Computed example of a mutant assay.
Amino acid sequence: MVEQFKIDQIDGKILDLLQQNSRISNQEIANQVGASVSSVWRRINALEEAKVIQGYGLTVSPEKMGYSETILLQVSLEQHNDTYLEEFTEMVNTIPEILECYATTGEYDYVMKVLATDMRSYHRFLRNSLMSMPFISKTFSQVVMDKIKFQKVIPTTAAQKK
């Protein structure tokens, strides 16, 4: 089990600001949370060391990069031995169009978020990667028709209540 890091209201405000704009300066954060710059710097370092902050980044538009299709792909394995699980994990980690992959409960073993330039390219992806693996027993694809909510921001309120 992952140990929860204890944050206070100021830490929560710092995380909220950094999630909105990871390029914000420590001075601007200090101004907005009512703390000194050195205090903000120490708090951010502590959050980084505790792996609460796991990295900084930006969001790129899949559509602007030529990916017009987002597919939620469910996958079941024929068997769950170590060799097949390692092969599957290695395959997933080598395909950049697979953005996310989760081991799940229920009828399917995994759920993935996959990008494709079009449905033909998705068909090639299925045929050349997953369906070429002998231990994949079944797949189920759902094409995303519209993005209702896309959020990378993690709410900080739960961590502040503990």
Rank of each mutant, 00 (worst) to 15 (best):
M1G: 12
E3I: 12
K6A: 12
I7Y: 01
I7T: 02
I7K: 02
Q9H: 15
Q9P: 15
Q9T: 15
Q9Y: 15
I10V: 14
D11V: 10
G12T: 11
G12R: 12
G12I: 11
K13M: 13
L17R: 05
L17Q: 06
L17S: 10
Q20N: 10
N21P: 12
S25T: 13
N26M: 12
Q27M: 11
Q27F: 12
E28Q: 10
I29W: 01
I29P: 03
N31L: 08
Q32E: 05
V33K: 07
A35G: 09
A35K: 13
S36A: 11
S36K: 11
V37T: 10
S39H: 06
S39V: 03
V40I: 10
W41K: 15
R42S: 12
I44D: 04
I44Y: 05
N45H: 14
N45I: 13
L47P: 05
L47Y: 04
E48D: 01
E49M: 11
A50M: 01
V52I: 03
I53D: 01
Q54I: 12
Y56S: 02
L58Q: 13
L58T: 15
T59G: 07
V60H: 10
S61L: 04
S61W: 04
S61V: 02
K64V: 14
M65N: 14
E69Q: 08
T70H: 03
T70L: 01
I71W: 00
L72C: 09
L72T: 08
L73G: 06
L73M: 10
V75I: 14
V75F: 11
S76I: 01
S76H: 01
Q79C: 07
Q79Y: 08
H80D: 08
H80Q: 07
N81Y: 11
D82W: 08
Y84V: 09
E86T: 12
E90A: 04
V92Q: 03
V92D: 03
V92T: 06
N93F: 01
I95Y: 05
I95G: 05
P96T: 05
P96R: 08
E97G: 01
E97R: 02
L99E: 04
E100Y: 08
A103Q: 08
T104L: 00
T104W: 00
G106M: 06
G106S: 05
E107K: 15
Y110R: 06
V111F: 03
L115C: 02
A116E: 03
A116F: 03
T117I: 07
M119E: 14
H123P: 09
H123M: 11
F125T: 04
R127I: 11
S129N: 14
L130C: 05
L130S: 00
S132E: 01
S132H: 02
M133W: 01
F135E: 06
F135V: 01
I136K: 05
I136W: 03
S137C: 05
K138N: 10
T139C: 04
T139M: 05
F140I: 00
V143K: 10
V144P: 02
V144T: 08
M145W: 00
M145E: 03
M145T: 09
D146Y: 08
K147C: 06
I148R: 14
K149I: 14
K149S: 07
F150P: 14
Q151M: 15
K152L: 14
K152A: 15
V153C: 02
I154C: 02
P155K: 15
T156W: 01
T156D: 05
T157M: 12
A159F: 06
Q160N: 13
Q160H: 10
Q160I: 14
